[in-house]
Amino acid sequence: MKDIYIVDYGVGNLFSVERAFDYCGATRIYTGVDFARLEYASALVIPGVGAFGDGMQGLQQAGLIDPIRKFASTGKPVLGICLGMQMLLSVGVEHGRHEGIGLIPGEVVPIPAERADGKVRRIPSIGWRELDCRCSGVNVPTWLHPTHGKSVYLVHSYRALPENPDHVIATYNYEGQEIVAAIGVANVHGMQFHPEKSGGLGLDILKGFVESI
């Protein structure tokens, strides 16, 4: 069974993510804060848009932080999308310092406002960017391999900085700055980009994720 639990914590594009997974072959999709269903899910997805602190507050108020950590400890797949990816890290500094879920050591910091040539960089980074996927290593899932050299849709002002460079599995270049686009370690992965908004390529990624569980 391809049962996927999509975390609903009041922040994000839940409906579009749910529809995308339905299209990509998920057998059943659960949303909300029903922890009994989470226990029997095959995979956990954390979507989200907005500020790091607001997202973590939403998870805390819903009582989801410890259940997410417990689910990850089972070895079942965990996937974070956009803000959901950022919250997988230890700390975010958007509008203050906030503790993250902490499944991947690292922090989330602003995209540098100044380019190497001294000119102002446009923030946020919005639009289609070509990915440089590191298609080798134990942390790189096969369902991300098709992204190398292809473009996906992103919109964000803060960037992930994992402590371990081996946890970076894809990047993109934004006005001369390398930005982390995907991270992962063991069964936990995250994408800064929106696969549900990235056309056929994004749906292929989600289909590959569903088929892998």
Rank of each mutant, 00 (worst) to 15 (best):
E175R: 14
G127D: 11
P105K: 11
L44G: 06
H156T: 00
T74W: 07
K119Q: 14
L88A: 05
A36Y: 12
R159P: 00
I101F: 13
A62C: 14
H148C: 02
H194F: 09
F15V: 10
F209N: 03
D3E: 07
E39N: 11
I169A: 10
A170E: 09
S90D: 15
T74V: 04
V17E: 12
I179D: 09
I179C: 09
D132W: 11
A170N: 11
A181W: 13
N187L: 12
L206P: 00
P67F: 15
G149K: 08
V180G: 05
S16A: 14
G12E: 04
G102Y: 12
Y40G: 01
H194V: 00
K150F: 06
P124T: 01
G75A: 09
I46V: 11
H148F: 06
D66G: 05
Y5G: 01
L59Q: 11
S42A: 10
A72E: 05
H95E: 00
D166L: 13
G202D: 13
E130I: 00
E178R: 15
L144M: 08
Q61T: 15
E39P: 01
A26N: 03
D204E: 14
R28F: 07
L203Q: 05
G84N: 03
R28L: 10
V168P: 03
V11H: 05
V108R: 01
I179K: 08
V155S: 03
L203W: 11
S198F: 12
K207E: 15
A181Y: 12
S42D: 14
E39S: 13
V168L: 06
R115A: 15
E211P: 01
L131Y: 14
I126Q: 06
I169T: 04
F209Q: 02
Q86N: 01
G149N: 08
G75V: 03
G63C: 14
V210A: 11
L44S: 10
P112H: 04
G118E: 03
N139H: 15
Y172W: 08
Q61V: 15
M85Q: 04
E18M: 08
N187K: 14
E94V: 00
R19D: 13
D132P: 03
L201G: 06
R69D: 03
A181R: 10
Q192S: 07
Y153H: 04
L161V: 03
A182L: 10
Y172I: 00
R115D: 11
N13I: 09
L154A: 02
H95W: 02
V120M: 07
P146T: 12
M87G: 01
R97M: 02
G96S: 00
Y40E: 06
L79H: 06
S151I: 02
R69G: 04
I213A: 03
S42G: 15
R69V: 05
E107M: 08
G190D: 05
V185H: 14
I6Y: 02
